[in-house]
Amino acid sequence: MSGPLIEFQNVSFRYGEDQPWVLKNVNFTIGEGESIAIIGHNGSGKSTIAKLINGLLSPQAGKIFVDGMRVNEKNIWAVRKSVGMVFQNPDNQFVGTTVRDDIAFGLENRGIPREEMIRRIEECLTVVNMSDYVQHEPHRLSGGQKQRVAIAGVLAILPKVIILDEATSMLDPKGRSEIVDTVSALKNNRHMSFITITHDLNEIIHADRVIVMNDGELWLEATPRQLFTKKDELVQIGLNIPFVARLAEELTRVGVELEKHPLNHEELLEELWTYHSKM
């Protein structure tokens, strides 16, 4: 059996010697094909983790491994082949003058032959449902469309993991759901890992596991269902739980017994139905 896809061993990081530690002795592993959400208050160290994974930053202490390679100067280009990043601001990640050129940029840098490039560009744009926009200027697309093109751009380099660093936070609700749908379709069809860094509690519901950061420390690793039972603790560290979990908690408080912790409306209504029919 192969090891984990990503591993943090006692990682600490700060931006300068007179600066406070942004990450303090962080340990975790992420397996191949796993879907992970990282949450935490502003300044908790979430985005630093993303930048450490693909070597945009390097830690002062500890070791980071990606796909069996230590992330360091020697391996950095190989590591970046395995890691695709989609950032927060859709306007800051385009270089090409057309959607096609933009996706081709990453492929050209890696010396992919022309025939293969054409094939991959077509395929990746189809996957994110943007194949009608091949000749469009990226800057004239909507926010959701821009982020989908950005996802196509990283998909084209066939990474083993895609990191979405608050990729939906600047989008309107329609753009958000476009991205959430695109990502969940990818999860089902491709054997890849996903790391979603987000403030949107409704986005973490689909994760296999959630890593909660607080003040640079790994505060908790749990499934979404386990996590949502810890409302008071989460509120204390600047987070919250989604509406359904809050309502379920309040219902339990007034004596409505629920068997498991519901994650969506359907599950909660089903639980209420069971409770009701037992009365």
């Binding site: 935490g40 502003n42 608050e166 936070s169 600047m170 403030h199 509120v235 600047g238 987070l239 919250n240």
Partner: peptide, 8 residues
């Protein structure tokens, strides 16, 4: 926009 849930 961009703030954590409690910040919002």
């Amino acid at each position: 926009a961009g703030l954590d849930p409690r910040g919002q």
